[in-house]
Simulated assay, not measured.
Amino acid sequence: MNNHQSGRILIVDDDPIVIRILASALSYYEVLMFAKSGAEALKMVDQHEFDVILLDASMPEQDGYEVCRQIQGKQLASEARVIFVTGRTNVDDETRALDAGAVDFIKKPVSIAVVQARVRTHMSLKLAADQLRRQSRVDGLTGVSNRLEFETGLRREWQHARRQQTPVSLVFFDIDFFKKLNDSQGHRMGDQYLKTVAQLLATAAKRGNDMVARYGGEEFVLLLPGAPIAWACSVAENLLAELVEMKLPHGESPYGFLTMSAGVATKIPEDDHYELLVEHADQALYQAKTARRNMVVKYKD
């Protein structure tokens, strides 16, 4: 196996000889990292994402069982598949490993063929689960995040902003007269316009924690953590102007081409109730839609 295969592996063992054996057996994976203690392993899983972790049960200071339990408590690391590789061979040890969150148990001295086969199986399962997880977070039509992923991201950014006492801005967008477009031009044209709008909005998510999502139907949201309301309004105004410049035909709109309305709200979190930010952005959007549309309205207390 000379070609690198997808997969990120962490080998945790206090014996350098075992590390060398396992590293040689698994050298064809794209990322291979090592730790010689439980503390070092926990530090590495905080800094990197791994698909499979090969973990020794017997290590000084902190045994593999405790390390495995702590890995399961970490949000990102808990998705990794932990395989114990150990000289402990009785049933109680194997059961203890599985109870701690491991998915498999390989006995020392290791068989290279067995290690490769077990890792290959669990790597395939992990990568397939990752793919399903990604698909569950994405809107199937437009390719941007779906509502569930947006709500997860909003909760995360809200808690971070609460700790830092920084603003969170949210922009609601709604395509103007979209139902009339669907009725006159058909859903195929409507779907194409939804994709175009999603692609346009995605250009505004320039930072790592910005997020564009399809909220439902012809509604989209743009989450801008750390952005003051003036910045969020400016982003929204620019996006509306860019859509107008595209001049996408819309015979049922008084403007003659596709436009959208936007509502903007900003809050510095004081408690856990992020839902209020959503309500405020939605109310501002409603004001834009009941006015002339093709405009940005910011929420005012």
Rank of each mutant, 00 (worst) to 15 (best):
R207Y: 15
P167K: 03
T166K: 01
R214Q: 12
K179I: 12
R147D: 00
V221F: 11
D176Q: 07
A198G: 07
L170M: 05
E218N: 06
V278T: 11
D272L: 06
I268M: 07
D183H: 02
E149I: 02
E157W: 00
R155Q: 09
Y255M: 09
T152R: 15
L200C: 05
T196G: 08
E151C: 14
K267I: 03
D191W: 05
R147Q: 02
E237L: 12
R163H: 03
M189T: 05
R207N: 12
N182S: 00
G186W: 07
A262H: 07
D210T: 05
Q192S: 09
D183S: 01
E245Y: 04
L201M: 06
Q185E: 04
L181I: 07
F177V: 09
M189Y: 11
H250D: 01
V278S: 08
Q287N: 14
V197T: 13
L258P: 00
G208S: 09
R188S: 00
L148A: 15
V221M: 08
Q165T: 02
K179E: 12
Y286W: 11
P225Y: 08
F173I: 05
L222Q: 09
G216P: 08
G263M: 12
L170E: 04
W158L: 02
A241Y: 04
L148R: 14
Y215V: 08
Y274E: 00
A204P: 11
K195W: 14
D191P: 05
A202R: 05
L277M: 12
G217Y: 12
R147H: 06
R163G: 00
S261A: 08
H273D: 05
T152C: 12
G226P: 06
G216W: 04
A198P: 05
A227Q: 15
S261C: 10
S184G: 10
K179Q: 12
V212Q: 06
Y215R: 06
Y286R: 08
T166N: 00
A227N: 14
N146S: 08
F150A: 03
K180L: 03
R156D: 11
E219L: 01
V168D: 09
L181F: 04
G186S: 09
D176G: 09
Q185V: 02
V171Q: 14
V235C: 15
N238K: 04
I175D: 03
V171I: 15
T152N: 14
P254S: 13
T196I: 10
L248R: 10
H187Y: 01
G216I: 09
D174Q: 05
R163C: 01
N209A: 11
L224S: 15
E275S: 07
L285R: 09
D272C: 04
P167Y: 03
C233Y: 11
A284H: 13
N209D: 12
